[in-house]
Simulated assay, not measured.
Amino acid sequence: MDPEMAALAGTAGTTLVTLLTTEAWQRAREAVSSLWRRAEPERADSISAELEVTRADLLAAQAGGDVESRTELSAEWQGRIRRFLMTHPEEAEALRTLISELGPHAPADLPVTQHATASGHARVYQAGRDQNIQQR
């Protein structure tokens, strides 16, 4: 898969799962369902139902203090969207539009975790707003 399409799927999956715990969750569900409805109409209702299950799982995880579930569920949706784009690359532009429309509704205060591995004499530098360096 083209790296740009893979990155698009990653962004879309993360944005989607993030929005499922906000007031924009229904809008996000409908937008993603309509994307599937155009390309695979027979799966649109099941995608909508899967999004509702994902939302319920996220809300339960948040209530229980489970911070890993968001990452796991984002990865699941990234995979679904990546496979969707592999089958329907013509929907990439519609997905980009969807992300740009829904992105501003995502909360800005979510933590970001970055992981990097260097081997040999290589060095990796990553930065967000603050930097906390840990060697393993």
Rank of each mutant, 00 (worst) to 15 (best):
V53T: 11
V53W: 10
T54F: 05
T54V: 10
R55A: 08
A56D: 14
A56M: 11
A56Q: 15
L58W: 07
L58P: 05
L58F: 01
L58H: 00
L59D: 00
L59G: 03
L59R: 03
L59F: 02
A60R: 10
A60M: 09
A60Q: 13
A60L: 08
A61W: 13
A61E: 00
Q62F: 02
Q62E: 08
A63L: 05
A63F: 03
A63R: 15
G64Y: 01
G65E: 05
G65K: 08
G65P: 04
V67S: 15
V67G: 14
V67A: 15
E68F: 05
E68L: 14
S69L: 15
R70M: 11
R70V: 09
R70Q: 13
T71L: 06
T71W: 02
T71M: 07
E72Y: 01
E72R: 15
L73N: 04
L73K: 02
S74V: 02
S74W: 00
A75Q: 05
A75N: 06
A75W: 00
E76K: 07
E76C: 06
E76A: 15
E76I: 08
W77G: 10
W77T: 06
W77F: 11
Q78D: 06
Q78P: 01
Q78C: 06
Q78S: 13
Q78H: 07
G79A: 07
R80S: 05
R80C: 04
R80V: 15
I81F: 03
I81Y: 02
R82D: 09
R82N: 12
R82T: 07
R82E: 08
R82M: 04
R83S: 15
F84N: 02
L85W: 03
L85M: 09
L85S: 06
L85P: 03
L85D: 02
M86W: 00
M86N: 12
M86E: 14
T87R: 14
T87V: 12
T87I: 09
H88C: 08
H88R: 13
P89F: 05
P89V: 03
P89D: 13
